[in-house]
Amino acid sequence: MANGGNQLSTFSRSGKLGSKVIETSEPQGDDVLILDRSDLRESFRILKEDPELDFAFLSDITAVDYWHKKEPRFEVVYQILSRAKRRRLRIRVPVPENDPSVESLTPLWRGANFMEREVWDLFGIRFIDHPDLRRILLYDEFKGYPLRKDYPVNLVQPRVPERPVDGTFVDERSRNKLLRLQKSLGSKI
């Protein structure tokens, strides 16, 4: 695989990301970097804008729940790509259960917006400084975060009452007719 190579040596503790690098590894020939979550956006800014690294394209953001398997419980996983250098890099950021939050990358890549909303929706990991952190796939009344491992797969969510939508045209004619009939027929209807 042409992906490997010795690019990981750039990220030694004395390298560009300094002490933010917790660990580097190459499982199955992929380059993986474990980063500390403090000043995360600054680390990504270096990865994106440094001409020697040039990871300008953000492919994916997702998360993993290591419930009862690992501490800290969550890891946010970023896949970035350098088109010029033809290299991919996976970045894992450990996130503890008691404060599941990382800095948002939306100011750097506008495309991070929806992917971070998805991670918030399904894992309940909060992205600090995100401009619009709402649920994206599920509805607002949904309780819990379904991709966490402690969310049972067959859990049934309660029914939600219909939400009135501002500015929707409501046809009152049939309701008025019903009220008229009720008045004229008394309690028979």
């Binding site: 695989m1 042409a2 992906n3 790509l81 088109r83 033809r86 991919r88």
Partner: peptide, 22 residues
């Protein structure tokens, strides 16, 4: 493409990347 709001490029460099990464 890099400067744009995030876009999965349909055909632009995909083949080249596939080749580069075996």
């Amino acid at each position: 493409v890099e400067l744009l709001p995030h876009r999965a490029d349909p055909a632009l460099h995909r083949r080249r990347l596939r080749r580069a990464q075996g």
